[in-house]
Amino acid sequence: MTHMRSTSSVLVDVELLVNGRRLPLALDPRVTLLDALREHLGLTGTKKGCDHGQCGACTVHLDGRRILSCLTLAASASGREITTIEGLADGDRLHPMQQAFIDHDGFQCGYCTSGQIMSAVALLDEPCGPGEADVRECMSGNICRCGAYPGIVAAVQAVRQGRG
């Protein structure tokens, strides 16, 4: 269904399922999932670094897999299960990956961190080899300009080894 408003473009009805909550929205069809989260739902934990799918800061999970929310139109995510950084902790209890990032100082400014953590959590269920070099490769879609890479690798390995 579409709507018109004098000052506005055509809107489409979208129902986003974010962190277990059902959120109906009427959106300009050009709105990306990233901007829907940040500008329409107040979920600013997901970051915009490049808006071109080149930096990984906007990584979220769509139906359990990591995707770039800046390259995903919100309308195309309608009805699918979305998890963002805000949905990772269980109340006050951090996800083990979040705690590992703190323990291993896997960030500095924090701006790429949500995307790094969402990638790292998804990686746990991906066919990534066991070594540090494998982790570096699997995490290379997420740029960190502060240079926290060694801490990120250590955090991922700690969680994986804690599991295994």
Binding site: T44, I102, D105, F107, T113
Partner: peptide, 21 residues
């Protein structure tokens, strides 16, 4: 010691300048 703003940063609750409501 661990970063005191670490919890805010790993939960997405640190507010950067474009993010004020």
């Amino acid at each position: 010691i661990d970063r005191l703003d670490g919890r805010q940063k790993v939960t997405g609750r640190a507010t950067y300048s474009a993010e004020w409501p």
